[in-house]
Design a protein around this nucleic acid. Structure first.
Lengths: 199, 199, 199, 199
DNA sequence: GGATAAGCGAGACGGTACGTCTCGTCTTTTG
DNA sequence: CAAAAGACGAGACGTACCGTCTCGCTTATCC
């Protein structure tokens, strides 16, 4: 885990094993985006990857683990974190980007997959980490604002991000209420005001 | 529709149909709470309700619709909405109650069920309505605060509730991050400050 | 059974009961002819007769009994028995008529219904009677031939009819082998030769 | 196709697939004989074969196909065809054997099954072939008699068999009229006389 | 460079749930 | 009060996935 990946499959990047792995994960992401998480099936993934079903079961075991691995491998880019020097602009842009991502089929699929596989504690933790790593980068926006004096010292970065992001996530997960275009801005404004305190 | 329920099943409260309906919905809620939404099956519900499986299929058709109906029929009480005269106390108490509910097996199940069946547009809308009706009562807290002058006139009630509730919902849905005991208070504080604007 | 039918349904020929009975039986015959005996269902019969399903169940109980009753009531005419004075012509014509009837949807349905419901001893006997009464009329052909000296005295009428008819019935029942146009004649010829004996 | 069976299931005679196949077909024949074709169910067959229900559906799809396959695989021996040098004795013995077979539960089931599934053209043809292959062996009796001069040269073998066998089949199929002990002999006699022609 | 071990393809199977279909019974409502 | 309307019980049917297993065969690794 430290200097050499323990997974024997990734040992040789050019080998057949790695090729199969990549094909399956790519296919999984495509199926996820096209069919949604509810109709996501291993048979479809294997067929699209040009790989035998048994192989997928051998390597990933269950549907949930495959979804998780595909997500981890596939969305490495994350949400872009702007840095314009103005905290309001940055937060609004980040919220906008997150909303756009969640409107994507892939984004919807990610959210659903996380929600559905959170029964298994191990998977739940993995999803937790997934979201954490995707969103905590935005903490830099808040931290920089504190550094510039735009926000008071001691500002709770986590709370800020949670207030900003979870309305968007919740809308993507529950029901089908669309995200109005000005919602990211309104969220950013209100959250900023809240963080600055009443005084 | 006005004085007599349109649903023919509920016409006679004492009849067999109504009795069966009640038994199934109750059993559904129990199974949901005990097994979770992923392992929720119609066979188990029918067995527990002492009703034939076919009847469940006849009346509800699919698992998703049964879950929805059980939720609609079963959680009529909703989250209590306090009225102490102090908006901060009220909001914090409401957030606390919501968090407690979401920590309940039933609460988790509700959240998961909504996330699960949001592929079907009709069901998604129904779940939207469900949450709307459960949470909008809390709008009274904000409205009363506006009336008392605790909050400015043009306060966006919906945004307020969304900021307050969605972090709790998201935590219940994604990952397994527990809700810290003081989170409701912190949420209430920050949201209130945000609503009051940057003085 | 002797001078007044015991069946209460037939008591009043003009009453509603009789009307319902007639409608159901007619509808049953139609469904039987159109859909075949395998897809014959009480629901379809009731719908076509403009009568409630429950009524059919009350009066006839099971599908088999309804089929039987419909057959008994519906095909009173039977197969025409010719009398030309020549036994070969008569037998061939009768065989031809039977073959034509068995090629009819109704005829196929009758044969299938008899074959399928012969598990129940009571029904089996009823079907036995049904066929007996339809075919034994043709015994007159043989008897007349004996009277005219065309066939020896002591000719086994039942055996003659069985030899003549059962190949046609079997072809209608098993497999889908069509009945060649000259088969009735060949049957009549061979059977007649057989009856006359070798000498 | 010549030296290796095309059916992939039978490729390995000792493999699990072949074992399962055999178990299911044997169980099917047993259920068929014990319960009759009307009460023949896949669940019962699977249970008796110690095989999962799904496997039966996968391999045979419908009840009718399973019945057919069981019959094809299970009654390979057919009706014994005697060769005593006397056509009357041979035909009578064959008719007797057929009558005995049709009196067997399995024999009844075969007849009923064919009558049951003759709606599907493919299955009807298969049943046709089934009966054809079971009965045409007896054609040798007639052919040998022609060779010995017991029967005239142009004797219609098919017609002879049909006249001999179909009365027995019809009695087994329709109604419940038992087969009298001397019926086979009388059939053989009359058919032989018929085949020899009038003087 | 050949043994050898790891992984893959192919095919079936056990298991669980789902949703459909019919039959025949039972309760409730209505004329 | 009897028939209509409609729900129910019972049970089979056929389908869809999931995850496991076995058996050859191909590929990559190791001596």
């Amino acid at each position: 885990m430290t200097e050499e990946d323990a997974d024997p499959i990734r040992r040789r990047p050019g080998g057949r094993a790695a090729r199969v792995r990549q094909a399956v994960l790519t296919a999984a992401l495509e199926v996820l985006a096209e069919e949604g998480v509810a109709r996501f099936g291993i048979a479809a993934v294997a067929a699209r990857a040009g790989v035998n079903e048994t192989t997928v079961y051998r390597r990933w075991g269950t549907r949930e683990k495959l979804v998780l691995d595909a997500m981890l491998a596939g969305s490495t880019e994350g949400i872009p974190v702007p840095d314009t020097g103005d905290v309001r602009t940055d937060l609004a842009a980040f919220a906008r980007a997150l909303a756009d991502y969640l409107a994507t089929p892939a984004g919807r699929a990610v959210a659903r997959a996380a929600a559905l596989s959170s029964d298994d504690p191990g998977l739940a933790e993995a999803w937790e980490t997934f979201w954490q790593s995707r969103l905590e980068l935005a903490g830099a926006i808040v931290d920089r604002a504190v550094g510039r004096g735009e926000l008071p010292a001691g500002t709770d970065t986590g709370l800020a991000l949670e207030l900003l992001c979870s309305p968007l996530q919740t809308r993507a997960l529950l029901g089908h209420r669309p995200i109005e275009p000005d919602l990211p801005e309104r969220l950013a404004d209100t959250v900023l005001d809240g963080l600055r305190g009443r005084a």
